[in-house]
């Protein structure tokens, strides 16, 4: 098993330029889309079947009264415990030898279970071919010794690519350095393998709590609810069935006035 690869997006170095967003579209030969007005520079409110890297712009009024403009290049998190992968009935979504989560278009049957199983809303459905689409961690590039297109394009090295342990160590040092410089809310998101989803292979350094960026504070796999939900469903079914039996018990014996 090869060492796990990861992308570390350090938003403290992001200048919101969108080189990553465009490089991704160019490399993956994604199509032009009609943008949507979001009220900010962001040109799509969500990931789409043609936008796998999406730069988000969040204006945050700090308690000091100062303004912060949080710039974040969002992407598929390549979760260690991936909801899309677990939901996929055909195995089209699979984990590569590098730990990244790829989506084999040929094996996809368009069922869209993956779309609803992603806690981050990353996966989108492409009506054209009728298949699901998401960031592949530039699988064609990493299988040939290259890093992802977004990391290559980033002018400030905000998106870093390498082996996971190396990047996590670097990220931890970076958070400490930022805190030392007075950036109190600097925090990692998805670096911890003991944290949510077993950790993210595309993890982040954020400058505010996750919900500021519309990221879930503690994302869970919907599949983790399957046993409990199923038992509840079965249990409810049994109760309804028993209730029905009890309610109609007297009918067959001609109770009541004749």
């Amino acid at each position: 098993m090869a060492r796990t690869l990861a992308m570390f997006t350090d938003t403290s170095l992001c200048i919101g330029c969108r080189a990553c967003q465009v490089a991704c579209k160019q490399w993956n030969e994604l199509g032009m889309e009609v943008p949507q007005w979001t009220g900010t520079y962001q040109n799509q409110p969500h990931f789409t079947d043609q936008t796998y890297r999406l730069v988000r712009f969040v204006e945050e009024a700090r308690p000091t009264g100062e303004l912060a403009w949080l710039l974040m290049s969002d992407v598929c998190k390549h979760c260690v415990q991936a909801g899309c992968l677990e939901a996929c009935p055909t195995g089209a979504i699979y984990r590569t030898q590098y730990g990244t989560v790829d989506l084999n278009q040929e094996a996809c049957n368009g069922c869209r279970y993956c779309v609803s199983s992603c806690p981050f809303g990353v996966v989108a459905f492409d009506k054209g071919p009728g298949t699901a689409k998401k960031c592949t961690f530039c699988n064609d590039r990493i299988q040939n010794g290259l890093g992802p297109a977004c990391a290559k394009a980033c002018p400030t090295d905000s998106i870093q690519f390498g082996f996971r342990e190396d990047l996590v160590a670097k990220a931890q040092k970076r958070v400490e350095a930022l805190k030392g410089m007075g950036v109190r809310d600097a925090q990692l998101y998805g670096a911890d393998p003991r944290g949510f989803l077993g950790g993210l292979n595309a993890f982040f350094l954020l400058l505010s709590k996750p919900s500021t960026y519309n990221l879930p504070d503690s994302p869970k796999l919907p599949q983790r609810n399957v046993v409990a939900d199923s038992l509840l469903s079965i249990g409810s079914g049994v109760l309804v069935g028993l209730g029905a039996l009890l309610a109609f018990r007297g009918r067959g014996q001609g109770g009541g006035d004749a």
Binding site: R18, Q21, V22, K25, Q26, M32, E33, V34, P35, Q36, W37, T38, Y41, N43
Partner: peptide, 10 residues
Amino acid sequence: LPLLAELFES
């Protein structure tokens, strides 16, 4: 250029 032109809605 489509990929640049789409970055701002208007």
